[in-house]
Amino acid sequence: MAYWLDMDSFNGILKELSADNVVYAPVKMTGKGAFSGTDLVAYREISGVEQIEFKEKSRFSPKEIVFPITQTLLYFTEEEYAVPGTGEKGIIVFCRPCDVNAFKRLDEIFLRNGGRVDSYYRELREKVRFFVIECAESFDSCFCVSMGTNRADGYDVFIRAAGGGFLCDVRGDLATLFEKFGGPAEMSLRFIEENKTKVSIPESVDQSVFGHGIWREYASRCIACGRCTVSCPTCSCFTMQDIFYEDNPNRGERRRVWASCMIDGFTAMAGGHGFREDHGDRMRFKLMHKISDFRKRFGYNMCVGCGRCDDVCPEYISFARAINRVDALMKEAVENV
């Protein structure tokens, strides 16, 4: 069912939903960009629809809502430990189609990979309802169409900001609420059907590409800062940390925090031996995971083509171009056989 709501009615809905839900959306935070005089668009709790940034792409993805950057797994004392709860409220996430698709990839790792369920992730993930923001236009760096992630399914509400109000396609039990606040409307869903940036995914990647000189080139360019992975909606690696409280060393926490295969120490074992010291090797590892390794396990690609990695790279390395270069190398290799 579709409804049209003006801003006040939409806020009426948000107000009712807020009783039982925490609502997250991309928010533009003035002056919070890294460079002075710039803004940061990232996910924050909101109370009104006017807080939502509908125009710009968020620098960080909504993954941090269900996979927090820092998450306490256990609190412990000398004798026992306790598992923190996540509260009773549901979670509403305003996000774009690519990000909904990214959650599917996170689910694959946290809920299915290896046959064990990550209970911390599941507890948060089960509460999530998606309010999908329609992409009116593709951003320059997006390549969702190439990745097949331009469409979103599994949402509760699909929103088009239009004419000072919101056209919403509503599925499931929320229809009652929307009916109360909005008027009936017609809506056909629109998805991005073409991006400026296009990638071609190689069917397979072999050893010849692994040893290719492009990785040496990336080694000389990449500074291993990890921004690409941190902004990526599908990167899900983490590290565990035990801390003790300074005022009581017998009590502490076991936490997990995000980790990045691009950052020093990711493969370092106790004693110091590491496996991918070279930044080009890390770049290749990340790329292979996104467009090949994940597919080997789950049958589809990990990358959702949101293009955030290209947006945030301080060294202007384009991941999309790297994919295309690998694809070209493989095609060349096939021709030369």
Binding site: K32, G33, A34, S36, A42, F60, I69, C225, V230
Partner: peptide, 18 residues
């Protein structure tokens, strides 16, 4: 100097008052 803000990949460091 704000270098920490510039280097932070997660925006854990952000700009406060000038």
């Amino acid at each position: 100097c704000g270098e920490c803000v510039l280097k932070c990949p997660t925006s854990a460091w952000t700009r406060g008052d000038q």
